[in-house]
Simulated scan of single mutants.
Amino acid sequence: MKKAAQTLKRRMHGVMFRFPGMITCNEFEDFILAYLEDELPPARKRVFELHLRVCRSCRLYLAAYKRTLAAAKATRKDYDELEASVPEDLIAAILAAKDS
């Protein structure tokens, strides 16, 4: 049963990419950021989400992309907090020593 489901999924995947307006995996990558920022026009968003439903690789890619963005945001937040905690006089002393 599992093999039959996989075969059907592969066939559907191939058929879906022949529909007019359907995007390829490469095109999918081009639209990820706009999708996540909710900036895709409604028709493009529907095509993007349809591609997501039929393409496991792109679902995995999107999940990894979201994790990467979250890690980058967390790192930036940590850096901003660290930078805010450094005393101004210490920064001035380091810059003065560097310039001399």
Rank of each mutant, 00 (worst) to 15 (best):
K66C: 07
E81C: 04
R59E: 04
F19T: 06
R46E: 13
A5T: 08
L36A: 03
Q6D: 15
L52S: 02
E49S: 02
L36P: 04
M12S: 06
R11M: 08
V54N: 05
L36I: 11
L40D: 03
T7M: 12
L8V: 09
L69G: 08
A63Q: 11
I32C: 07
Q6R: 13
H13L: 13
D78R: 13
A92M: 10
A64D: 11
A97L: 08
F48E: 00
D89R: 11
A70Y: 02
R10Q: 14
H13P: 01
E39M: 14
V15G: 02
D38F: 10
I23N: 00
V54L: 12
Y61G: 04
F17Q: 15
A97Y: 07
L50T: 09
I91V: 15
R10H: 10
T75R: 13
T68E: 15
K98C: 07
A64G: 09
A74S: 12
A96N: 10
L82V: 13
S100Q: 13
A5S: 10
P87A: 05
L62P: 00
K2R: 12
R76C: 09
V86I: 15
A43H: 10
M22A: 15
A96Y: 07
E27M: 07
P41F: 12
M1V: 12
S57E: 10
L90W: 10
A96P: 02
I32D: 00
E39D: 09
L62Y: 01
A70F: 03
M16L: 09
K98T: 07
D99K: 13
D30W: 06
R76A: 15
F19S: 06
P20T: 08
H13I: 01
T75H: 06
K2H: 08
K66E: 15
R67Y: 07
D38L: 06
K3P: 03
F19M: 12
T7W: 06
K77P: 01
S57K: 13
K2I: 14
G21T: 04
I23M: 02
E83V: 13
R44V: 11
V47W: 02
A64Q: 13
V15Q: 09
A5Q: 12
A70G: 03
R18H: 07
N26Y: 08
P87W: 02
A63L: 05
D38K: 14
R46C: 12
M12P: 02
E88C: 06
Y61H: 13
R44F: 04
Y35H: 07
L69H: 04
K98P: 03
Y61I: 01
K45L: 03
A63H: 06
L62G: 01
M12T: 12
V86D: 08
D38G: 07
E83G: 05
P41V: 14
H51P: 01
V54S: 04
E39V: 05
E81T: 09
L52W: 00
K9I: 03
